[in-house]
Design a binder for these strands. Structure first.
Lengths: 229, 229
DNA sequence: CGATTCATTGACTAGAATCAAATACCGTGG
DNA sequence: CCACGGTATTTGATTCTAGTCAATGAATCG
């Protein structure tokens, strides 16, 4: 049963930590009042596909999601990764511009778009939050753009690791990467071989170390920051 | 003297042509009721700078504008070009994320952000337009992203020319480029030499011809579209 | 018309892609 | 616990695209 006038989106106070795990520093920090369903997706399961009508607004509760596009020749570009607390899938147009898949087993909160629209129409604060959400996605896309246009492989990897560290609320420089090397490559506009080689070189340079394939320990943040500039 | 409740933004009907020259197919087709000032900017004049507080919303009336960022090592990335009819400069945050300059002598409509905010608060249709605007900028940034991540020089040039043709409402495949080769290079993540060479090669391949340095005549749209895929 | 900026062309280099193979990791079943 | 098959990752050799450095040619503006 829905409230008569539900609060749909609420920007979180910076230091707050909600029970389903927000993404600190992600720039997409909202709480979604659990008025929608919370749905599990298996590893690699499709959440929505490109060109489908956008029926829902999503928020990652647990796991990780990739948003991507396939080019006609098979190349894949990952546009964004979504981590717990991140909102995604809301569109201004009438189709999804990207596909979305769960990277690992994930659970996702889902709210009907029609509900969002209705609330936004009545409540200018919610309308403003929608605008801010789009603006934050835009800011991320612009940063990503810059990375792809003007940065070398080492700089892309450095920026990626710093971003992941920030977004996953890294304790002591330990970052757990939820995605495979191929995903990182497709996000950074590189090949998997270049990602792998660059990792190896940076480990040799003691910039970071690999506690396992997916667990990174940042050792020289100054060096990473320098590459990130 | 302002209206008590001015209509600030009005989406244009598709085939309409407003007197100050909109950008057909640009995805940013709005009319700005002339309640702000119309200001002239000389070639290369700064409209706003990165990190400045965003005080205004702008619309190109005549000319062209580039939005860009300078990296610490002097590299420049142009994030977007704005043509007549395009809205730009509105930010969700408290600083401009890019700088903006007039490419050629231009005139720009300017409305105070505080006015926009006030109107959006009262009028949910205007709030929605602001959201749509951000979403359209996002869509452009995403397309641009894809181009930079996954496309070769020829493909980038092809996409750029098709985009410019579409946005400038090309009559018979004639496109007037308002920007210099260096701007194109900095937009496409290439060097000026690569842009120049690629132009030359595509002219030899009869994909297009140059009526002058800045005037392009598209000859083989199929070839361009193929590269654009 | 001359000065300056902009664009093109050429020779060479660097960085990442490609092609190919070896190694590590992981879940499953014996 | 270990062997096995499949997947993911790393490493190596080579190629190719675009960048860099350098010089020439064209366009534009007082």
């Amino acid at each position: 049963m829905l409230h008569a006038d539900p609060v749909l989106l609420r920007r979180e106070a910076e230091p707050t930590q909600s029970f389903y795990g927000p993404a600190p520093g992600s720039g997409l920090r909202f709480s979604l009042v659990p008025m929608g369903a919370c749905i599990p997706f298996a590893r690699n399961a499709e959440i929505y596909a490109e060109d489908e009508p956008p029926e829902y607004l999503y928020m990652v509760a647990k796991g990780a999601v990739r948003s991507y596009k396939l080019l006609s020749d098979g190349r894949r570009q990952i546009e964004a990764f979504y981590l717990p607390g991140d909102l995604f899938g809301i569109e201004a147009g009438d189709k999804h511009r990207f596909s979305a898949e769960a990277i690992s087993g994930s659970t996702v909160w889902v709210v009907k778009r029609s509900v969002v629209d209705r609330v936004a129409q009545r409540d200018s604060a919610v309308a403003r939050e929608l605008w801010m959400l789009a603006a934050q996605h835009l800011a991320r896309a612009q940063d990503h753009l810059l990375l792809l246009a003007r940065h070398k492989a080492h700089e892309r990897i450095a920026a990626f690791l710093l971003e992941m560290a920030k977004r996953s609320g890294d304790a002591e420089g330990e970052v757990e990467l939820p995605m495979a090397r191929q995903d990182i490559a497709d996000y950074l506009g590189l090949t998997i071989e270049t990602v792998s080689r660059t990792f190896t070189e940076m480990v040799h340079a003691a910039t970071f170390s690999l506690r396992s394939t997916r667990r990174v320990l940042l050792r020289d943040r100054a060096a990473l920051a320098r590459l990130n500039a």
